[in-house]
Amino acid sequence: MTVQPQPPLARLHDEIDARVRDIRGEHPDWPCGKGCGNCCRTLADVPQLTAAEWDLLRAGLAALAPQPLREIRRNLAALVGQRSRPVVCPLLDRTSNACLVYAQRPVACRTYGFYVQRHLGLYCHGLEARVAGGALANVVWGNHAAIDRQLADLGEPRALTEWFEQWIAEIAIKKGHQDFVAIVTGRSNDEIQVLGVLKDRSKQTVKEFFSSIPKRLRISVRYVCSDMYDGFINAAKEVFGKKIRIVADRFHVAKLYREGLENLRKKELRRLQRTLSAVDYKKLKGAMWALRKKEADLTDEEKAILEKLFEYSPRLKQAHLFRNQLTAIFDKHITRAQAKHLLNGWAARVKRSEVRFFG
């Protein structure tokens, strides 16, 4: 009888489950578990998943009843337009305080409260307080850096919002129509509400929805934030008038310039794999995750990986710097004139460099 090897993600889950069982066995009152929800309500950013994690999560989503799936969709739509941090996980059932797809949850959710990252400490504030008070000294914590290295072999991580958007579009195409692939939200005083889930992405459908908004409310609309699809933009201009300000949403802008860095990384690592010795190339393992992280969140080990990578690829170092600079501009709360000045300066520096994918 031939025994099929266990998939890498399943092996990783088994490793994490073993660590969780050991800790729970010694500490039956351990706070982290289904129904806690504290970490789910204080995420630093939109969850990132590898392809293998998304395949598992998608199976869980597909098994949900229509109502919770619609709720997840509304949560994701609101998350795309939310600039404030932390964020609440869109997969959280706000009533039960548990994940709607708990059995298929990502690796990061499984390790939270049981694994630590060197120099960054614990992620769970409740546990941090207990450790600071002298408790839990005998706990054998999992090593999160080791988990990150294994995740790096499972494919490119992408934001949950991006995976979900692609999945919904694929479902619509398979059905032969564009069901529920346009979501309209409204923002007022930093509060975001879902206004409508439209049957397709066509300009006419969006225009009809905009036109259905009472005139007294339509004249109060000053900005329309959208992806860069002409159908949405033109529908907004025709309904709200030429004076309406069109804003390209940050999610799609960031997706474009981050993809540029990702493509250069792949190209450079392929080159280095051909030119470096196997021993030297192995030292770059984990570069993908390190490049995607915010600088403040990097471990010493990840900083060392990036330093070594940038020695071999100055162009990648320059592109990484430009990406961080552009993100920093978006993070600033400044006037339009100040933003224009900073963006023009950034663009000028890019043009003078050897980096070409930001155009």
Results as ranks from 00 to 15, higher is better:
Met1Cys: 08
Thr2Asn: 08
Pro5Tyr: 07
Ala10Leu: 08
Ala10Arg: 14
Arg11His: 08
Arg19Ala: 09
Cys32Tyr: 06
Cys36Ala: 03
Cys39Ile: 04
Cys40Met: 05
Asp45Phe: 15
Trp54His: 02
Trp54Ile: 02
Gln67Pro: 05
Arg73Gly: 15
Arg85Glu: 07
Leu92Asn: 01
Ala98Thr: 02
Ala98Phe: 00
Cys99Gln: 06
Gly113Glu: 01
Arg118His: 11
Tyr123Gln: 11
Arg130His: 07
Gly142Ser: 02
Ala146Cys: 10
Leu151Phe: 08
Leu151Asn: 11
Leu154Asp: 01
Ala159Asp: 03
Leu160Pro: 04
Glu165Asn: 12
Gln166Asp: 09
Ile168Gly: 03
Lys174Val: 10
Val181Ile: 14
Ile183Lys: 01
Arg187Tyr: 08
Arg201Thr: 11
Lys203Gln: 14
Ile219Glu: 15
Tyr223His: 11
Gly241Glu: 01
Ala248Phe: 06
Arg258Ser: 09
Gly260Val: 00
Arg265Asn: 12
Lys267Ala: 12
Gln273Arg: 14
Leu276Val: 01
Ala278Ser: 10
Lys285Gly: 07
Arg292Phe: 08
Ala296Tyr: 13
Leu298Asn: 04
Glu302Gln: 14
Leu306Phe: 08
Lys308Met: 13
Ser313Gly: 04
Pro314Lys: 05
Leu316Asp: 10
Ala328Lys: 15
Asp331Tyr: 09
His341Glu: 06
Gly345Cys: 12
Arg349Gly: 00
Ser353Asp: 03
Arg356Tyr: 12
Arg356His: 11
Phe357Tyr: 14
Gly359Ile: 01
